[in-house]
Write a protein that binds this DNA or RNA. Structure first.
Lengths: 242, 242
DNA sequence: ATCTGTCAAGTGTTGAACAATTCAACAAAC
DNA sequence: GTTTGTTGAATTGTTCAACACTTGACAGAT
């Protein structure tokens, strides 16, 4: 019998999925505060279910909850960006080291991602371009063959994506990153892992400083804490759990 | 000015903390199924709050939820152990590479952990010994100075600890690992990172194969999936309950 | 024995309530 | 005018009770 693909997901999980998509797509921008009752009603679920969904996303790092003050879409600080790129360096380089005997299937997927990336840039669909860019890197991680590392990487990339919706088309030009990825793919298939790692590190450093720069220009006046204001000191107000 | 941090944690978080402790301490053994209503009543909270707590722990990987079938304490498969030690290798080695200029404060803590480890072994308090052992390794991770990597490491170690409650005092002898850790500390303070990394890798491989061996002897046939399957396995699951 | 329908138990979800906390606006005091 | 209570609406945290839906086990029929 075909018992393969019967997915029974709870409503809470589905709601979490919807919200996750909205956050990652930029429909819900960082700092946006989400109220339980209106959101629950708009999706036709009960408040408890919505709370479960929000709990999921806050544990994923996409939402930040501060007690009795509400839930908001996470905002990245420069320190967060540093950390996330640190994570990327550690994991992606480790992945390259595990790619001595790359699975041909994975290489094909990498190539496909590369092509879709280029196509998206050509059509100037930059949201899609960024997606395929990140997908390319996610595929690298698969060389590790480790579910835990993969899902941690995905979660981290998710946080990064939230921050990147601020960058969007006006400030950045994803097209210029095409040659780098092509080179990475080429070196990878040629087995020149050492050199590949070098290029990859450069690429990551480049991306990080680019994003940091944009964030500095863009959000100069608004600190991550600004949404929850307290008259005496805005800093201590950042008491956050989850 | 110096106010001690005011901790405002939700009840759900506290309940999650209690359950986490029970799981990590081995009071709740892997495979034990947890029922919402009795547990909620025993802790004096509502069912919804208990569900939130369980959601937290299942996202942490300590509990495993299968829809409409209940929640049980996670069980590690051999594959899980492989993955977890893979994670440890990647992170701990990366941490060592970041320890070129080790913070003296961290070195002191490492030394303290080492001492407490030895004391615990001397008193034959092996649960405490394992804790200090793992704490020693957690301190290594702090060299990375990366909150995300640290919490991911902690989460992973947590899963491992759940599996280790099966090993416990009868099958293993933590004492013999003291010299390795002392050597690690010594090489680290001497700045011989290359050699330190080598020893660390050996140590991790050793621990992994030791745990795998014990799991093979101990739990022979059980895979994590099997508990939710058919009648025959249902018996095996029941055996774990007592 | 195998199969099938029934049934109790447990989880998933809902809706409504109440308690606790925050925040802003306003009043009172210096 | 600034600071310091005080009030009150709004929102979140938590509880409670109900119902729908699955599941696993059991009893009776084949």
């Amino acid at each position: 019998m075909e018992r393969s693909q019967i997915y029974r997901v709870s409503v809470a999980d589905q709601v979490a999925g919807v919200l996750r998509q909205r956050v990652l797509s930029g429909e819900l921008r960082p700092g946006t505060s989400l109220q339980e009752i209106p959101l629950a009603e708009s999706l036709g679920v009960s408040r408890n279910t919505m709370r479960e969904a929000m709990r999921i996303l806050s544990l994923e790092g996409l939402l930040k909850r501060s007690i009795h003050r509400g839930i908001a879409v996470a905002q990245l600080s420069l320190r967060d960006v540093q950390e996330i790129y640190h994570v990327r360096r550690v994991l992606e380089i480790s992945a390259l080291e595990a790619a001595k005997a790359p699975a041909p299937e994975l290489l094909r997927e990498l190539f496909a991602a590369l092509e879709q990336y280029e196509e998206a840039v050509e059509v100037r669909d930059w949201i899609s371009a960024v997606n395929h860019d990140l997908h390319f890197h996610s595929l690298l991680i698969r060389f590790l063959g480790n579910k835990r590392l993969e899902s941690f990487y995905q979660k981290t990339i998710g946080e990064l994506r939230v921050g990147m919706v601020l960058v969007d088309q006006r400030h950045d030009h994803p097209g210029i990153l095409i040659p780098v990825h092509r080179k990475l793919y080429q070196l990878l298939t040629a087995g020149k892992l050492k050199q590949c790692a070098k290029i990859l590190l450069q690429h990551l450093d480049d991306s990080e400083s680019r994003l940091s720069k944009v964030m500095n220009d863009h959000g100069a006046t608004r600190t991550p804490e600004s949404s929850a204001r307290s008259k005496t000191n805005g800093k201590a107000a950042a008491r956050v759990h989850d």
